[in-house]
Amino acid sequence: MATKPIILTAEGHLKLEQELEQLKTVRRKEVSEKIKVALSFGDLSENSEYDEAKNEQAMVEARIAEIEQMLKNATVLDESGITTDAISVGSVITIKHTKLGRVDTYKIVGSTEAAPLQKKISDESPVGKAMIGHRVGDLVEVEAPSGVIVYEVLEIGK
């Protein structure tokens, strides 16, 4: 089965590398210490601290493996190659909801970096997918669970 390519901005790539480093150098040691403390309590059959620490260790190791896999398959965007002619991954867009008149600014990012509360939307989200390739002045129809929403592209930046 082919692995889906992961698109990251330089900032997103750096954040993943930092998280991986923190997990490997800090979290592993913390969890290891918790396991040692829990083992000192004796009988493992009724030792909830030990069970909890082993579960935490499994989650940390799973996240490490996940990040390593993402970084291995990641393509880092060359942000100098992003143009303001048309919307692409890496573009910062200002769009207007034509019915409500609400104006929002978003950065289009790969799905790994999506953080809607930080105004970073995935290129695979309904809005992100619909916006790709459009230009300033275009009216873009977005299929949403509530129905079709029309946005006007006001600005494309980097």
Rank of each mutant, 00 (worst) to 15 (best):
A58C: 05
G133H: 12
T94V: 15
V142H: 14
S91V: 03
E66Q: 07
S122M: 00
D85R: 01
Q118W: 09
V92R: 01
E11G: 08
G12F: 00
A114V: 07
E113H: 00
P145F: 04
Q18F: 08
Q118P: 10
T98W: 03
E152V: 15
G157N: 12
I149W: 10
Y151D: 01
I82R: 02
G90R: 03
V150L: 15
M70G: 01
I87F: 06
E52I: 09
H134F: 09
K36N: 10
R63W: 05
V150T: 11
S122V: 01
G147C: 02
G12L: 03
E46A: 06
I108T: 09
S32R: 14
E152I: 09
G12Y: 00
K54L: 14
E56T: 04
S48E: 05
G81T: 05
K24Q: 13
Y50Q: 07
G133S: 10
L139W: 02
I64F: 09
G12C: 04
I87W: 08
K4P: 00
V37D: 14
V109Q: 00
E61A: 03
S122G: 05
D104W: 15
K72L: 06
G128E: 11
G42T: 11
G137A: 04
E21R: 13
E11H: 10
I7K: 03
R27V: 05
L39Y: 15
S88I: 02
G133P: 01
E19M: 13
D43A: 09
G128D: 13
T3Y: 03
P116M: 10
A58G: 13
S40G: 12
T3K: 04
G81M: 02
E143Y: 07
K15I: 07
I64W: 02
S80T: 15
A10V: 09
L23G: 07
T9L: 03
V150W: 09
D123E: 08
E61S: 05
I121F: 04
L139C: 01
K36W: 14
T105D: 05
G147M: 02
I149C: 08
Q18D: 12
V76Q: 04
E17F: 09
T84W: 02
E124M: 13
L71C: 10
T112M: 03
Q57K: 14
G147E: 04
E124T: 12
G90E: 00
D85V: 03
K15L: 13
L14P: 02
E141C: 07
T84C: 04
A38F: 11
V136Q: 12
S32P: 08
V89R: 01
E79M: 12
K36P: 06
G42I: 10
S125Y: 11
N47P: 09
L16C: 09
A74G: 05
I108V: 14
T75R: 09
V89Q: 01
L14C: 10
H97R: 13
K120W: 14
E46K: 07
K119Q: 10
V92E: 02
N73H: 13
M1T: 11
T84A: 00
A2H: 09
V31A: 05
E66M: 09
G12W: 02
E11Q: 15
E155M: 13
E49C: 08
S80H: 13
I35S: 15
A53C: 13
K54Y: 04
D78P: 05
I156P: 00
E19D: 15
K158H: 06
K4N: 15
L20F: 11
E152A: 11
G12I: 00
R102G: 00
I7N: 01
S146E: 14
L117R: 11
K24P: 04
G137K: 06
I35R: 05
P116L: 06
F41L: 11
